[in-house]
Amino acid sequence: MESEPLQEKEELFRYDCKQFLIELCMQMKKRFPFEENSLIAMLKVVEPAEALSTKRDLKSLGKLAVHFPTLIKEDELDLLQEQWRDLLYARDTLKGISQSATVFWNDLLSVKDGNNKEKFNLLATFMCNLLALSHSSACIERIFSQINQVKTKQSNRLDTNTVANRLLAKQAITRQEVTYQKWEPSISLIKDAKLGHCHMRYKEREESRKKSNTATLYHSEVNDVDDEELEEDPMPVSFFLQ
Rank of each mutant, 00 (worst) to 15 (best):
1 M>C: 09
1 M>F: 07
2 E>W: 07
3 S>R: 07
3 S>E: 13
4 E>S: 07
4 E>W: 13
7 Q>R: 04
10 E>Y: 01
16 D>K: 07
17 C>E: 03
27 Q>R: 15
27 Q>G: 14
27 Q>S: 06
27 Q>C: 12
28 M>H: 08
30 K>S: 14
30 K>D: 09
31 R>C: 14
31 R>M: 12
32 F>C: 14
38 S>V: 10
44 K>S: 10
45 V>W: 01
45 V>I: 03
48 P>L: 01
48 P>Y: 02
50 E>M: 06
51 A>W: 00
52 L>E: 02
54 T>F: 10
54 T>L: 15
55 K>L: 14
64 L>G: 02
67 H>L: 07
69 P>N: 10
69 P>W: 09
72 I>L: 03
73 K>F: 12
75 D>L: 05
81 Q>E: 11
86 D>S: 06
86 D>L: 07
87 L>K: 00
92 D>V: 15
94 L>H: 00
94 L>G: 00
94 L>C: 00
96 G>C: 03
97 I>V: 12
100 S>F: 11
100 S>K: 13
104 F>P: 00
108 L>V: 01
109 L>F: 10
109 L>P: 05
109 L>Y: 05
115 N>Q: 11
116 N>W: 04
123 L>Y: 01
127 M>K: 02
129 N>T: 08
129 N>A: 10
130 L>G: 00
131 L>H: 04
133 L>W: 02
133 L>A: 02
136 S>T: 04
140 I>W: 08
143 I>C: 08
143 I>F: 09
148 N>G: 12
148 N>S: 14
151 K>T: 08
151 K>D: 08
156 N>K: 06
158 L>P: 03
158 L>Q: 06
159 D>L: 03
164 A>E: 12
164 A>I: 05
165 N>I: 15
166 R>N: 11
167 L>P: 00
167 L>W: 01
173 I>S: 04
175 R>T: 13
176 Q>M: 14
177 E>Y: 03
179 T>F: 04
183 W>C: 13
185 P>V: 00
186 S>F: 02
186 S>E: 01
187 I>Q: 11
189 L>V: 05
191 K>L: 08
192 D>Q: 15
199 H>W: 06
199 H>E: 13
201 R>C: 12
205 R>F: 06
214 T>R: 03
214 T>Q: 13
216 T>M: 08
219 H>N: 12
221 E>K: 02
221 E>G: 07
222 V>Y: 03
222 V>S: 02
222 V>W: 05
223 N>G: 08
223 N>Q: 11
227 D>Y: 03
228 E>A: 13
232 E>L: 11
235 M>R: 07
236 P>W: 05
239 F>H: 10
240 F>W: 13
242 Q>C: 07
